[in-house]
């Protein structure tokens, strides 16, 4: 299939991009890596009036340090994220999850920011960003604003990025030292989206779990934090039994969909198993 016709803009700066979005009419789509957008357009499930291609906006690419945070440009490709030593050092959870995204070819084109703004509930990076308490820097006609991850994912395929706005970068707090991390993904075939996945980051202290952050992929229209699990883990002994007991809360407050990969009750079951496994691995057990 061939996409429906559209107007095409290719800005080279964020300001130009914002102008192009403003000038693009009713239905503007921002093209980052295009690895979800182009298939949807080919199937004519989306037929935007204007496509604004960020491919030439150099300032949106790359990973840098800024004090206690890593700053990941929205247009940094998945392969660049994987190859980046700062990510490997400070946010291995992102690398682990990114490695599971689709396949090599898609990772060469697909971008970190694009995946987050697309906010596919089955996508791998939103739950990771949520678990890591990332912050999203959004540019708009009125300037820039920063949105914490808990406010960024609004609904199914919907984020805090408003009309006329653009995600420019994501700030991820460095979690150095005693943190362990694990992204536990469950799908049927290698290149598929997650049926359920769990992103866990665990800080151990003296045989106990001092702090745990658990993000859930595809357990509802948006990525979720497994708050009850985190609370149960906080201060718990770092033992398989304690972790299993905490993980049993993983499905609380979730509303997963039922589709041909999994019905809701099975997804909820998977969440508990995968949470136990992710936390156990992250805790180094």
């Amino acid at each position: 299939m061939i996409p429906a016709p559209f107007e095409y803009a290719r800005p080279t700066t964020v300001d130009e991009a914002l102008q192009a979005i403003a000038a693009g009419g009713e239905d503007v789509k921002v093209l980052a890596g295009g690895q979800s957008l182009i298939p949807v357009m080919r199937l004519r499930l989306a037929a935007p009036e204007t496509v604004v291609d960020l491919g030439r906006v150099a300032e949106l690419r790359g990973v840098r340090e800024d004090g206690d945070a890593l700053v990941i440009g929205a247009m940094t490709t998945h392969s660049d994220v994987l190859a980046d030593p700062l990510i490997q050092q400070h946010a291995p959870l992102i690398a682990q999850a990114t490695e599971t995204v689709a396949d090599r070819q898609v990772r060469h084109r697909g971008t970190f920011g694009g995946a987050l703004v697309h906010a596919d509930p089955a996508g791998d990076l939103p739950a990771v960003a949520l678990a890591l308490d990332a912050e999203f820097v959004i540019a708009g006609p009125e300037g820039r604003r920063t949105v914490p991850a808990r406010d960024f994912f609004v609904d199914y395929l919907t984020t805090a990025v408003g009309e006329g706005e653009l995600l420019v970068e994501v700030r991820v707090p460095k979690l150095d030292g005693q943190w362990g991390m694990r992204y536990e993904k469950f799908n049927r075939v290698a290149q598929a989206w997650s049926i359920v996945a769990v992103a866990a980051a665990v800080r151990r202290e003296n045989g106990h779990i001092a702090e745990a952050r658990v993000g859930l992929t595809n357990m509802g229209p948006t990525p979720l934090r497994a708050g009850a699990v985190e609370a149960a883990l906080s201060g718990a002994e770092a033992t398989p039994e304690a972790i299993a007991a905490a993980a049993a809360h993983a499905a609380e407050g979730t509303e997963p969909s039922s589709d041909l990969n999994a019905q809701a009750d099975y997804r909820q079951h998977l969440a508990t198993v995968l949470t136990r496994r992710a936390v156990t691995a992250a805790a180094g057990l």
Binding site: Y8, Q35, I38, D53, R104, Q105, H108, R109
Partner: peptide, 13 residues
């Protein structure tokens, strides 16, 4: 130099 799926790249890109 990098493998891509040319059905998921626009020629203009």
């Amino acid at each position: 130099g990098e493998a891509v799926k040319s059905c998921t790249v626009l020629a203009v890109q």
